[in-house]
Each structure stands twice: as structure tokens, then as C-alpha cells.
Design a protein around this nucleic acid. Structure first.
Lengths: 229, 229
DNA sequence: GGGAGTACATACCGTTGGTACGTACTCACA
DNA sequence: TGTGAGTACGTACCAACGGTATGTACTCCC
């Protein structure tokens, strides 16, 4: 079985950035990256189920041997794509988070960034739509917990800590879950809205009202009965 | 191609309840029902992707010919299961909703029922985990909109109408989306909690606090600027 | 410079969703 | 009462896809 020649120039060109690697490893990481790139494109475009490995390896100009050398299977490849998409989302939110001083204002900024991320078609398809089904609940939760959800938890913790509420970690997590779910659902609805800008404005009003309510209660010195074991 | 005899007693026994049908139709609906029953069991137990049509038809003691006579394919069968699960969930929530008088109290009751439903493993797997990926976003949203989400919208509308807020339909929908997402996420987190009862209690405290905040703002006569076109 | 391990390519397999086609049965209508 | 049309399946088969087994060229280190 003779081996077919492959085009090398482009691969090398891409690979030559990370300098301290042998040519071998440079090629390797280049093909791996190409696979993830093409996979992300296909997974985001047509979804996980409708994407065949054949189309991916064809797009990356490699064979299934290469794919299965780098990944355990289709799911592992998806997971790599998933992680990258999540990571980029985290980066965007984190960036938008470093401006305001007042925690409640910063929270609103973070929420806005979160809303923007959730509207990204790739994020929607890969993370929200296919993520839970493909990774399974456990892995999905785990991935979520150490990326965007972690950010949400930071935001919530910062705002709640500035209030008079005396909430333990579990309650912070509960509040984070609630806001995380709320903004995910709200953000997704923006995509199918007739006027996305208006939809975002409405969401900001609603969330702002909720936050204001919590702040007023805090100013009144209200302290919820936190259940414990 | 001779035809293998099939057991008839059980089918007839099941089918004989809806009286005004020919024997033919009784058998037909019985097999269809059997298919959906077995499909629900498998889809809920192992998920959509891991369930083969062969295992379903074997469980229902029919063949693929029968399946494809009643459904267009695997997805259509899943949709039938999905609808049934959603419908039962709606029934449960609706039932729990007819007790209190004060809209804010009724909301908390509906919330509790919603939390219970979302914890049901079948509901989780079929509706939340596999639903979006299998049906696709459009169909999923459509199904959602006329079932559990519709209920949520009723609850939200009832409570907001009793407040001083002057919110149009779009804002009601926005609030509904927010609470729907919040409770979905919160409810799902209950399942993986160490102490589910405690987790539910925490969620009720958190949501209660949010609702209280909104009520206090309403009592203060606060009216949000509702964006319009 | 040669042996070991890497980074793939090629060929093949089992399963699965879906289809084509055949047949037994029922029921309206003559 | 029988007969033709339509229903409700059963059987056999196919194409596509995920995954595997195996072979080979290339690199790198001793």
C-alpha cells in the first residue's frame, strides 16, 4: 500500500509559528488543528449527527487514520471543538468584565457580554444544542462548570458579597444556576426574534428590574432564611 | 415470503377499550401505542442515539415494516414520544396550579410543580437533553411554546398583571423566557445534587427572594422603561 | 546509521436507518 | 355473498457511517 503524497507547504506555513518543536511535531499539531478547524465548521454548520467523519477528513485533507490517531473517535473530536468554543466564549466575557467598579454595574456588563456570546450561531449549535446530547449530562456539566458557568458564579458572588445577604457557597451556586439558565434561555430567544436589538433591550430591562429588586431588598436589610442541613 | 404468526391476545386486550373502532383499527392503534411505549422506555433509558430501531421493534414485538407504516422514521417516533412526555408534564403542572388565590403564591406553587417535573429522569432525557438536538431548534421551540412554556407564560402574566408594572405582551414573554430558563437550569441541577430536598429548598428561597424583590419594587410604584419600536 | 516510535494511509467490518416489495386481512359496496 | 381496493403489516435488502486492523514512510535519538 503506497502512500499518496500530500501538500506540505500550507501545513508548514501554519505550523512554523510555535518554534520549539521538531518538524515532526509541527506537522502533527498542524493536522490536529486542521481537523478541529474543519470539525468545528461542520459541527456548527450542520450539527453533530449530520456530520460524517468522512466529510471532516476530506475537508482537512487527511484520512481516517489520521483522525483516529489524534482522537479516540467522533465524540472526542467533538469534545475538542466544544472546549475551544467554550474557551473563546469565556475569553470574550472575561474581557467585558474588567470595566466597572460597582459590582451591580459590572454584573450588568457581564450579562450583556453573556447575551452576546449566547447569540453566536456556533456557540448555540455546539455548546447549547448538541453539547448536552453528545457529551452526556455529566461531561457537559463538568465542562460548563469550569468555563462560562464559573464566570457567572464569579459575577454572582461579587454582587451578592456586596449586599447585606449572608449567603453560603451553596446559595451562591443556586443563584448562579438560576441566572445562568435565565440568561441562556433569554439569549437563545434573541436569535429567533424579529428585532434582536429590541429583544436584547427587553432582556436588559427585565434582568435589571430583577437585580434592582434584589438590591432594594438588600438595602432594606432583608435576610432570607438560608436552609442548611 | 410467508408471514410469521404474532401473539394476538395481549394486543386485543389492550385495544378493546376504545369501543367504536373496527378490529382492524384497534389492532393498529394498539401496535402504534406499543411502539411509542417501548420507544419512550428506550429513549429515556439510553438516549436517542444509543437506541436502535431494531431494539424498539423487538421490544414491541413487531417489525420495521410496522414501524415505518406508522412513523416516517426514527425522528418521527421520537417526536411522538416527546409530545407525550411534554403533555404529561403539562398535566402535572396544571393540576398543581389551581389551589392558591394570590397570584404570587400560585406562582410559587407552579414553580414547585415545575421543579418536580424537571427532575423526572424521562423528562430530562427526552425533553431537555435529547429534545433540542433531535428535533432541531425550530421544532423544539414550537413544541415548547405550546406546552410547558405556555404554562409558564400564564403564571408570569398572572403575577405581573397583579402588579403595578405596565408590561406589554413582549415583556411578559421576555420575563417568561427568563423564568423558564432559570427554573429549567435550577431544576436540572437538583438531580445531581447530594441532597435534592435541600437543593429544592435553596431554589425556592432564591426564587422567592427574586419574586419578593419584584413585588417590593411594584409596591414602591417603580415602573421600568419598556423599550418599544 | 539503525532501531524504535510516531504519524499517518489503506482496506475492511459490523451496525444501523431506511427502502422496496410482498402478503394477509378487513371492509365497503355490488 | 363475494370481490376488489386499501390497510397493516412482514421480509429481504441496501447504502452510509463509525470504528478497527494493519501496513508503511518518516523522524529522531543513541
Amino acid at each position: 500500500m503506497p502512500r499518496a503524497p500530500r501538500p506540505t507547504e500550507k501545513l508548514l506555513e501554519v505550523a512554523r509559528s510555535g518554534s520549539k518543536m521538531g518538524r515532526r511535531q509541527q506537522f502533527s499539531t498542524a493536522t490536529k488543528r486542521a481537523l478541529v478547524d474543519v470539525a468545528e465548521e461542520h459541527f456548527a454548520g450542520q450539527g453533530y449527527a449530520a456530520t460524517s467523519l468522512d466529510s471532516i477528513v476530506a475537508g482537512a485533507q487527511v484520512t481516517k487514520g489520521a483522525l483516529y490517531h489524534h482522537f479516540h473517535g467522533k465524540q472526542a473530536l467533538f469534545e475538542a471543538v466544544f472546549e475551544r468554543v467554550e474557551q473563546e466564549a469565556c475569553g470574550r466575557i472575561t474581557e467585558a468584565l474588567r470595566t466597572r467598579e460597582d459590582p451591580w454595574d459590572a454584573a450588568m456588563d457581564g450579562l450583556r457580554a453573556f447575551l452576546t456570546v449566547v447569540q453566536d450561531p456556533t456557540y448555540q449549535r455546539v455548546v447549547i444544542q448538541d453539547g448536552p446530547a453528545v457529551l452526556g449530562y455529566e461531561r457537559f456539566r463538568e465542562q460548563e462548570r469550569r468555563s462560562t458557568f464559573a464566570l457567572m458564579q464569579d459575577i454572582v458572588r461579587a454582587t451578592l458579597d456586596s449586599s447585606t445577604y449572608d449567603l453560603d457557597g451553596a446559595m451562591v451556586e443556586t443563584f448562579s444556576r438560576i441566572f445562568y439558565g435565565a440568561l441562556s434561555a433569554a439569549g437563545e430567544s434573541v436569535t429567533s426574534a424579529d428585532d434582536p436589538v429590541l429583544a436584547v433591550a427587553r432582556i436588559e430591562v427585565a434582568v435589571g428590574l430583577i437585580l434592582d429588586g434584589l438590591r432594594v431588598l438588600s438595602d432594606q436589610g432583608v435576610t432570607p432564611r438560608v436552609p442548611s442541613t
